[in-house]
Write a protein that binds this DNA or RNA. Structure first.
Lengths: 244, 244
DNA sequence: GAGTGGTCTAGACCACTGT
DNA sequence: CAGTGGTCTAGACCACTCT
């Protein structure tokens, strides 16, 4: 594991260990229920000090890949409703309250991808995708019109599986159903006029200003696994973003 | 500096040291040009090990409060055009390019705060504030209509000083002119129709959908120091947000 | 060469969890 | 009780900067 210290492409030991362990987590070597090896075991395995392993794993906790419990061990993070809500749902009520949305599916089917979908999801021309449209309701009121596209190469038979389970939160569903963990997402926000269809679903006038959230969700290795467009009525809810 | 280890309100040593040093940076004890004391000096001063000081300062680098250079020392972060742009300006061109905006001031004056301003900036009723309106142009094209309110208690004589300097980026101006460092901001985004005045400035039709960014900028201790509303034409530029 | 921060090690003590 | 992660210390070696 040692590396010529002043070699041209030098990387710190802890960064190398970090990368190695992340790869093993990605490969699904440990289930959510079972702990990763302890610091001492990793240290022995990789022939480095316990402090170096500690630093490697600390980076992983910072990246939300694992959680650690004193006395119990280190565990791969699982997508929960709570996590999805706190990390990937940014609409808050004008008074600051965070409400959990519910869902009303409108349609779910399989189709061939067009040029735009291929480009956004990095697919081959004509690859099949699952497509889902739904309304999201907060306190029973429809606030978001959402259309979601996922590659069937990653989620085989998505449409049928969705109809069977009708999950409200998708990321935990991706994880338990397909072993796909969304770890990052890039969103592009803009203001657009409501189309007739969207306006109808959300009880708005046609052409009313809507907040469009265009999101690409990424799994390990920045692999795109979902393209989602959310059209939001921002009268009573705002998109919250904190900058540092 | 030692603390009863199993006391009810136990805080790790490094967190206490962190807090102490942050307070001293806040108080302006070191200028941007001069380095903070070295790890060894801090360790001796607070009577802890160098590793503990290192961890305290590492937290500060993670929070963008200081930067460290091997062989040189640790320095208080200064707001630069680059930093403001990368941390606090989130509009990117549709093709992904990040352009720097220029500014065209429309008005700048002093006024009494109304109820809404007092609430947002946490001010006493009737406190005086500086108010600035400007257009922001990207590649010469007006894209954002911006109105900015700052408390004169924090920025004495703001309107006059602004007119004298006509800064393009405000946060470096706040810092060099008033010693106020913006370290965090909370933004609420929504879609609104363009008013006649805004539509005119941005060459849009009245009622066109606009992205409104409502931002409160915070200094140390989460003290609000600026309220900014930016109305953006998102035809060619989108607001970029990355989620983890 | 002295001083800076960055990495790595080794070992101590602690709090908490399981048995 | 042994085993886990969390904190703290002490010391070594390194790359880099300034003088």
């Amino acid at each position: 594991m040692s590396e010529s210290p002043s070699s041209p492409a030098f990387r710190p030991l802890f960064a190398q260990i970090h990368e190695l362990i992340v790869e093993r987590v990605m490969a699904g070597e440990w289930r959510h229920e079972e702990p990763l090896p302890s610091e001492a075991e990793f240290a022995k395995f990789y022939n480095v000090s316990q402090g170096t392993v500690r630093r490697a794993i600390s980076e992983m906790t910072a990246q939300n890949l694992v959680v650690r419990f004193r006395g119990k061990g280190t565990f791969v993070v699982r997508h929960t409703k709570e996590r999805e809500h706190s990390h990937f749902f940014h609409l808050v009520r004008n008074d600051g309250a965070k409400d959990l949305p519910t869902s009303k599916p409108l349609s779910c089917r399989s189709r061939r991808s067009n040029k735009e979908i291929c480009q956004r999801l990095d697919l081959q021309a004509g690859a099949r995708v699952g497509m889902l449209e739904r309304l999201r309701l907060i306190r029973g009121v429809p606030v978001i019109f959402e259309s979601i596209v996922v590659p069937e190469a990653v989620f085989p038979d998505f449409a049928a599986a969705f109809k069977e389970n009708l999950p409200n939160e998708l990321y935990p569903f991706y994880e338990t159903g397909y072993g796909v963990r969304v770890i990052r997402a890039v969103e592009r926000l803009s203001a657009v006029p409501a189309t007739a269809r969207v306006a109808e679903g959300l009880n708005l006038g046609q052409g009313a200003p809507m907040l469009e959230i265009d999101r690409i969700a990424l799994a390990y290795g920045d692999k795109p696994v979902e393209w989602r467009r959310s059209l939001c009525n921002t009268k009573d809810y705002k998109y919250l973003s904190t900058l540092y």
